[in-house]
């Protein structure tokens, strides 16, 4: 464990807590894409299939439970909770995510470390996580006034993977033989997808104006 990875995990955790805070306190998910939340739940389910048969540490185990539990409860809130569901903008959240799920699955079948069910699912979760934010970014472009919590949520979500990139650089130079091409490339693509959001987010923060993504 290194400071970049710990900061990355804490940033990831705080992004989820910001979202849960928004949904739970103001009972609204305006501006949040249910598609992205469902994709993230799928990412965690396929990534943590080994949660009970591969024990790394208490920290690892607890964080997996938190990520699984929070992502599933967010999907539940947005689907089942009356008030929250009413604030969900179904007509704007139209990204057809079969266009990303299927290619990720095919790619995982072709490029992986080992052709076993769990390994392919784990690889699939990496590819899927890289593009899972797309429905949310599309929705943000369509949402006129993005509220602060939604902006913070997306920013933290992007920042966590950027911190993981630093973690991989650190581990590459400190752990001989540490090479993870699949993870590195997926993580790089994921972070690059946030590039223009980061640009407009930091601009709006510097000029102290409302966050607005050009359509």
């Amino acid at each position: 464990m290194n400071v970049f990875r710990l900061a990355g995990d804490m940033t990831h955790l705080s992004s989820i807590l910001v979202l849960l805070l928004k949904i739970h306190t103001i009972k609204s998910c305006a501006g949040i894409s249910l598609k992205t939340q469902e994709l993230y739940a799928l990412v965690f389910i396929t990534r943590y299939l080994d949660i009970f048969d591969r024990f790394t540490s208490i920290y690892n185990f607890l964080m997996k439970l938190i990520f699984l539990g929070s992502s599933l409860s967010i999907v539940w809130y947005m689907r089942r909770h009356k008030a929250v569901h009413r604030s969900y903008d179904k007509d704007q959240d139209t990204f057809r995510y079969q266009f990303i799920v299927l290619p990720c699955l095919l790619l995982a079948l072709v490029i992986n470390h080992k052709l076993t069910f769990k390994e392919v699912m784990w690889t699939f979760s990496l590819y899927l996580e890289a593009v899972a934010i797309l429905p949310q970014l599309v929705l943000l472009q369509r949402t006129r006034n993005i509220d602060n919590l939604t902006g913070q949520y997306v920013f933290l979500l992007g920042a966590y993977r950027a911190l993981y990139l630093l973690n991989w650089v650190y581990r590459y130079f400190t752990e001989p033989g540490f090479v993870r091409w699949i993870t590195w490339i997926a993580g790089l693509v994921q972070t690059l997808l946030y590039a223009d959001f980061f640009y407009y987010y930091i601009l709006s923060w510097k000029n102290n104006v409302k966050l607005e993504l050009p359509a």
């Binding site: 990875r5 995990d9 990831h12 990534r47 080994d50 591969r54 790394t56 690892n60 964080m63 997996k64 990520f67 470390h113 080992k114 390994e119 784990w122 993981y164 973690n167 033989g177 540490f178 993870r180 993870t183």
Partner: peptide, 10 residues
């Protein structure tokens, strides 16, 4: 590096 190491991150 055996499979276990590959999955040590979240």
């Amino acid at each position: 590096e055996d499979e276990d190491d590959k999955h040590d991150e979240l």
